Amino acid sequence: MDTSTLRTDLIDKIKNSLDDETVLDIARLVNLNNEKLIVVFTEEQQMRINKSLLDYKEGRYVTGEVAEKDIQEWLKD
Rank of each mutant, 00 (worst) to 15 (best):
F41P: 02
T5A: 01
D9G: 04
F41A: 06
R48N: 13
T5V: 03
N34D: 08
D2N: 09
E21N: 05
T5R: 05
E44K: 15
T22K: 13
K15T: 05
V23I: 15
I11K: 01
T63Y: 06
E68D: 14
T3H: 12
D2T: 13
V30L: 14
E44T: 13
N16L: 08
E21M: 08
E58L: 13
L6V: 09
D20A: 01
D12G: 01
W74I: 12
A67F: 11
N31K: 14
I49H: 08
E73V: 06
V66C: 03
T5P: 00
R7N: 03
K51H: 15
I11D: 02
V23T: 07
I71P: 00
I11A: 11
E21W: 02
V39A: 02
D77R: 04
D25E: 12
D20Q: 04
T63N: 04
L29H: 04
E68F: 04
E58F: 06
D12W: 05
K51W: 11
Q72L: 14
K15V: 10
R28G: 09
I71K: 14
Y61A: 01
K36W: 12
D25L: 09
D12C: 02
G59M: 03
T3V: 11
K76V: 06
E43M: 01
V40P: 02
N50D: 15
I71S: 04
E73K: 15
N31A: 15
G59D: 01
T63R: 07
S52C: 10
L53D: 04
K69V: 01
L53T: 14
D20C: 02
E58R: 11
K13Q: 10
L24G: 09
L29M: 11
L10G: 00
L75C: 03
D2S: 05
L75S: 04
L29I: 05
K76I: 12
I14Y: 06
D70P: 00
E73R: 11
L53Y: 08
E65H: 02
R7H: 08
L75H: 10
E21K: 08
E21D: 12
E73I: 10
L24N: 15
V62Q: 08
K36T: 13
E65G: 03
R60V: 12
M1A: 03
E58H: 07
R60L: 05
L29K: 06
D55L: 08
L6S: 00
E21T: 10
R7G: 03
D12V: 00
K51M: 11
K36F: 11
T63P: 00
K76P: 02
L32R: 13
R48D: 10
I26P: 00
K13W: 08
N33Y: 03
Q72P: 00
V66H: 12
L37E: 06
T22V: 03
E58M: 09
E73T: 13
G59L: 06
E35H: 11
K69M: 10
V30P: 00
R48G: 06
K51S: 14
L32M: 15
M47H: 15
V66N: 09
K57Y: 11
T22A: 05
S17I: 03
R7K: 05
S4Q: 05
D12H: 11
S52Q: 08
T63S: 03
N33K: 12
K57R: 13
L18W: 00
I38R: 09
R48K: 12
